[in-house]
């Protein structure tokens, strides 16, 4: 059995009705493990860009790219596997029912990990974490260990290729 690995790709697709459904439908129809999908329009509003995370072995991953490429609505597939890229996910965490001591602790966590407290009340505070997916995973673990009632909303990754090395010097 080939090794399952988490991989990322970006897609340029036609910004049309039904395209998202067609792309996501491919993953369910062919039993590919879609883990994350984000989509938004680009500088050209007739084009959307998707960032997709899948868990797949090498052969399946190749097949996914080919299947996406053959869709009429898909303009370009960018494999982010071996390309340096910036990748961030937005996550909100709302912590409920906390006393003053816990509130202070939350602010400390925010400071140490470089995330922002964006909202608060007497017993509730919300932090906004814009960081890598794995750091967000770690953050959730920490919050769960420290607090009893938390709500998590995650946005999925967005990615962009790094500036070309040739452009740097």
């Amino acid at each position: 059995m080939a090794e399952m690995k988490k991989r990322w790709m970006s897609l340029y697709v036609e910004n049309q009705v039904g395209v998202l459904s067609k792309i996501s439908g491919l993953f369910s129809a062919k039993m590919y493990n879609l883990e994350s999908l984000t989509v938004g329009t680009t500088e050209d509003e007739s084009v959307s860009r998707m960032t997709i995370g899948v868990a797949a072995d090498d052969v399946t991953y190749e097949q996914i790219k080919k299947q996406l490429n053959r869709m009429v609505e898909v303009i370009k597939v960018i494999d982010l596997e071996n390309v340096p890229a910036h990748m961030k996910e937005i996550m909100f965490a709302k912590i409920n029912n906390i006393n003053a001591e816990k509130m202070t602790e939350l602010f400390q966590i925010a400071q140490v990990f470089g995330v922002r407290v964006v909202d608060m009340g007497t017993k509730t505070a919300t932090i906004e974490c814009v960081q890598t997916e794995s750091k967000n995973n770690e953050m959730i673990k920490l919050l769960k260990a420290k607090f009893s009632t938390i709500e998590i909303v995650r946005g999925g990754n967005v990615a962009i290729e790094s500036v070309s090395v040739t452009d740097r010097y």
Partner: peptide, 16 residues
């Protein structure tokens, strides 16, 4: 019908 047939044709579109 476009939704129903999305996975079984080469291309499908509703003319809006």
């Amino acid at each position: 019908i476009i939704g129903i047939t999305r996975n079984i044709c080469k291309y499908g579109v509703t003319v809006r």
